[in-house]
Each structure stands twice: as structure tokens, then as C-alpha cells.
Nucleic acid binder design. Structure first.
Lengths: 195, 195, 195, 195
DNA sequence: GATGAATGAGTGTTCATTCAT
DNA sequence: AATGAATGAACACTCATTCAT
């Protein structure tokens, strides 16, 4: 948490709304300032530049995400349960904030590579949680002992991400959260027919 | 195939190189023209506008991909084999063209939403191939009869895409193609320990 | 001479007018473009940036100055005559272009230090002409053999510059050229009473 | 003397340091305030606006200069001696304060025309001292009776100014004060060879 | 068909100044 | 008196696209 001052959060929340409603390339600083109810210059009292708003936005929101997910997972005993919880929580957190879903799944990806790399740094915290679950699972016999954890993590993240993006691109028409158990099952059991 | 004229392909190939080497936002029309060895204005004799270059680029390359993959798959009998072939082929085709890998996995994603939606249209052809494999598999008993094909397709594509992107972001350091069997196995058998 | 293209000179002449009439800090690129009858972007086909316009302006005009003065001096035999000619020519050239006089004496001096240093580079050509006259004079006995040439040059330039600046600040009300002989005499003979 | 309060002088001295070390265009009010150890807003309790700081700076320092020079001159009997004293004092006062030399010779000249005109008003006091010396000299026969005082004054000031500026631009590497007698001699006797 | 000079709309950021505390 | 958070106007430069040759 960089700052506790109310305007800091005000501006970030304004950025989410402006980007979601106007698109990444139409989200001018002046538009964000107006939405936040501050002067253009005030933005620069709280953020180094425009890019800093976007990175901070991602850090704040994703940091909150990871925290929430960690808390939920802590209450579960098996890796299988933990993985289900992670998927459910990830889905439900984004389903609860339509604007944020648009921003993280569609708009922020239009940013330049430099910003995307910084966003990836933040994501590492999330991927680390996935890794922990998978490693614990392979150790206690829940998951295959020969599991390639890095590959499995890419599969978990790739699947979750693609599922959410498809849902956002379909205008968030269907219930995302209810899909979680099926995603979870496919990850654990795979596509193959059980004899 | 929009055009057969040599300059059409010249310009598309120039665009791949310029975008890969300079990044999406530094790939000006004049730079592409110079790389292609034509005048700026000539671009507009072959493409409606800049966006049209990028869509055409994706259509040409992805169209070629799907065709190649279809051909390879046609020679396989089981869905499992077909899926393995699709993954292997997808990996090997991108591994063979480093520039194209950078462009499709990293750079083109910075384009605006409108262009990304058009790119998604092109991708539907690819996703359709995946669907065909999966549906056939559920019918002949190779795959679970209760498989949610849409979800499974998202998992296949999300996993392949994330795997390739991670590989590109790691500067294509390791051998991508050799990972294909493990990805395939995880998709078919899942993470769960086999008793 | 950087370019022979007409627009290059057009823009420089426009810059002189705009700066003289609006002042250095009110001479926006768009104003210069409008005065030159070209689009804003056209400026950047001929100049690297705004600073480059100002440096080029100075180089073109001062280069022309030095050339003219050199030509006039070549026709004179003694150093005393040459010095008089230099002063007369310098005065008359600026008196003939009121806009340019304002720009070089008042406005361009408001530029930042970096630009001023570049302007000084151009001035070195002028100061070199003064040096040549003074050195020749000391050698042929016209001027004191113990003359500190560097100091004398600073005196020549400082006096000419201050005289012109005072004249410009007085709105160029009196005839500058007619002062030249008196300036010349003071430099040669000094303030002291001749016994 | 506008104010006697300590913060008034504190701010002016801070301005000299900040301008000398950062340059005119990088001398923001907030930087001056920080250097002076006061809040930004406090500046405006002592100065009308930023320009007022600079004018006051010039008035204070130049007023002190003129006073010092007047005192020194009062002790001399001849105009020639007085002129030498003026040059020596002017040189030595600036040589004693490197920051101030940079500010008056280089940085303050980047200010806009309006401010420069106000600075010129202050300079009139200095020029008046020069005039007094010259007029007295022409009357008592020390200087040429036909001396154009206005022109001679421009020469004195132009020469002194150019000499100091050259010295500052050369990073104040050599001893400025020791040049004074030679400058004085050139002004009095001129460049011409004495038979 | 091919050229490339010309166009002109669009925006992040700074900083002198104010004023509620 | 002193503070410092907030304000908002102002501008150089890029680059996709056009069109006369």
C-alpha cells in the first residue's frame, strides 16, 4: 500500500472506470482527473506519470486479490481444495467488478511492452501461490509425483485467463463463478475418459 | 488470399520484421515501407490502412498455420494423436519463425480492441479445429463423454498460448517443441495422481 | 547553407518575424508555421526541433553577415579602414532589418544556456575576423605593438553589441550607421585628451 | 531596502544559489523556497511574484555594488583614477562571488524582456556613475573635450560586460581583477599606436 | 503503378500562484 | 506569520494518410 491518502485511491478507481468505459487509448489523464474530481495537476502529486497510475492500479488491485486468495486458501487442507478455491475466488472477484475485469483482461494488455513487463512482475506473486499449491500436492500424493510444476502452473494460469477473457469478450453474459468447479475438475482429471 | 502481387507479401513480411525488431508502437508505416523497399504511399495501394496490414498479416500467417495443422491432423486416426499433433505443430511452426513468435505473442496484443476483435475472428478457424478434435473424441469414447467442449477448448488454447508466451518472454531460450508431449499429457490426464 | 529548398528559408524568415513581433517566449511553433504558410508538421521536415530553427536562423543570418563583412574588408588596405568598415557594415546590416535586430539583440538572448552556447559557436567566426584585423594592425605598426588582442577584441565586440542593443531598446529611433565613425575613433584613439 | 526581515534576504540569497547551480529555467519557486528553508507560500509574503524576487535580487546586489563603487571612487581625485577604480571594483566584486557572477552575466539574461527592462532601470544608477566620471573628465581636460559621453559610456559598459561574460563562460579560470588596468588603458588610450 | 512531400489533429506534464488551516 | 496541497493553462512534436506528379 503506497499511500493511505484518499485521493490516491480516488484516482485509481477513476482510472478503472475511465479505461473500462473509454478504452485504454482514450483514457487521457485529463479524463481520469475529471472522473476523480481533481485537477489534472493533482494526479502528479500522487503518481510519477501516467504509466505509474496504471502500474499502481494493477498493484493495488492484484495485491488485494492475492491477499484475498491467500486468506481463503489458508482455510483449506488439501491442494485440490486449495486449487478450487483459487479458481473460484479469482472468478468471483472479477465477476464482482465488471469494470476491473474489462481493464485487466482487455484494456491493460494494449499497454506497451515495458508496462506489461512491470505488470508481469506483479503477477509473479500470484503465480507463486499457484506454485505453492502444486508443490504441496505433489509432495503429499494428491497430485502426480512427476508433475512438471512450471508447465502445470502455465496451464492453470493460461486456462483461467483464457476463460475469463472469453467471458469478458462475451460481455460477461453468463455466470463465470459457476464454471469454476468444471475448470478445476478438468485440470485435476484431464480430458481423458476414465475407464 | 487477397492478392498475389509480390509487393503484397513483401509488405507483410516487412511488417513482421519491423514489428518484431522495433515493437508495435515503434512500427511506423514509413518504417515498414522502407523495410519493404517501397514508398510510403505504395503501402496504400495494397492495404486500406495500417490496421489492414496487421489484420492481413495475421490472416496470412494464421491461415497458413491452420492449413498446415489440418494437413498434419488428417493423417492421424485418434483424437489423442490429433491433439498431440496440433500442439506439436503449433509449437514447431512458431519456434521456426522467431520474429513471427514475437509479433503474435507479444506485439500484436498491444493493438487496440477493435483490431484484437478482428484477430479473434481469424482465430475462430483455429479454435474450430480444436473443437472438431474434441467432439470426435467424446463421440468415440477416447475422451470423457461429459466433456464441456467449450471449456476444454479454452483450456487447450489458453495453455498453448501461455506456454508459448512464457517461452517468448524468456527469449526463446529453451526448446519449445520438446515440451509438446508433456502439455498434451497434462491436458489428457490432468494433474491428479493416478492410483 | 543547409538547404536550398524554398521552405527552409521561408520558415526561418517567418521565425524572425514572429519572434520580433511576439517575443521569444510567445513564438510558438504553430505561430511560425502559420506565418510561413505551411503546416506545423512541415516545420519538422526541415528542422530537427524548435531549437534547431533558432540555431539555423542565427547561422544563416550571421553567416551571411560575416560573408558580407569579409567582402567589404577585402577591399580595404589598412587595419584602421578595415575596422571602420566592419563597424559600419555591422551597423548598416542590422539597421536594414529591424526585425532581425530585435531578434538577435534582445529576443534570442532569452534562450536557454545550451542554445546560447551554440550561438556563441557561430559568433566565433565573426570574432575571428576581428582578430585578423587587429593582429595585422599590430604587425604593420598601425596599432600598438603591445596590444592585448583578446582584450581588444572583447572591447570591439562589447562596444558594438552594447551600442546596437541600446539603439534597439530605444526603438531604433536614431540613425545607427552614422555613429560608426565615432565608435571607430574611440576604439582607435581612446578617451584620453590628445595633447 | 525593501525589508529588513531576515527571511527577505534569506530568500534572495537562496535564489542566487539555486539559479547559479540549476540555471534560470530550472530555478522553480519551490526549489528556492526549499533552499531558503521556508514553505513555498512564504515566498509570497515577501515578494509579489517570482519576477519580483529576481528584480529585488538585482536591486539588492547591484545597489550594494553601486554603493561600494561610489565609496571607492570618492577617494580618488582624477577621472582616470576613478575610471580605473570603477573597473577594478566591478571586476573584484564579481570575482569574489562566483554564484552571483553566473547569475548576473548568464542566467538572468534569459529572463523575459519585461524583466530585462526593469533590470535596465536598476542599471541606470550604475551608468550614471560612469557618466559623472566621464563628464568631469571632459571638463577638467583629462579626457577629450569632444567626447561623446553617451557613446563612451556604452563603450565602458559594453567592454566591462563582455570581458566579465567571457571570463564567466571560461569557467572563471583566470584572474579577472588583474585585467582591469589593461582594460582601463585601452579605454583611455585606444588601440592606436602612440608615435 | 509508384512516389514522397505535405498535412494537422491530439496530449502528457510543469509550475507559479492561491488559500484554508 | 507560516504552511503546502491543490490548481489548470499552455505547447512541442509524431505519424497515418493524401494526392499532385
Amino acid at each position: 500500500m503506497k499511500q493511505q491518502k484518499p485521493k490516491y485511491k480516488q484516482i485509481i478507481d477513476a482510472a478503472v472506470i475511465v479505461i473500462a468505459e473509454n478504452g485504454y487509448h482514450q483514457a487521457q489523464v485529463s479524463k481520469i482527473a475529471k472522473q476523480a474530481g481533481v485537477a489534472d495537476g493533482t494526479i502528479y502529486l500522487y503518481f510519477k506519470n501516467k504509466e505509474d497510475i496504471l502500474i499502481s492500479l494493477f498493484q493495488e488491485k492484484m495485491g488485494f486479490f492475492i491477499e484475498k486468495i491467500r486468506q481463503e486458501i489458508a482455510g483449506k487442507s488439501t491442494s485440490t481444495e486449495k486449487l478450487l478455491t483459487l479458481i473460484e475466488k479469482h472468478f468471483s472477484l472479477l465477476a464482482a467488478d465488471h469494470h476491473l475485469a474489462i481493464v485487466t483482461q482487455l484494456e491493460l494488455r494494449q499497454s506497451n511492452l515495458e508496462l506489461r513487463l512491470k505488470i508481469n512482475e506483479v503477477l509473479k506473486g500470484y503465480l507463486h501461490v499457484v506454485d505453492e499449491i502444486l508443490v504441496a500436492g505433489t509432495k503429499n500424493g494428491e497430485l502426480r509425483s512427476d508433475l512438471d510444476v512450471r508447465l502445470a502452473r502455465q496451464m492453470v494460469f493460461g486456462t483461467i485467463d483464457e476463460t475469463i477473457t472469453t467471458w469478458v469478450m462475451n460481455d460477461q453474459k453468463y455466470d463465470l463463478t459457476s464454471i469454476a468447479p468444471r475448470v478445476h475438475e478438468l485440470l485435476i482429471k484431464g480430458f481423458g475418459a476414465t475407464p
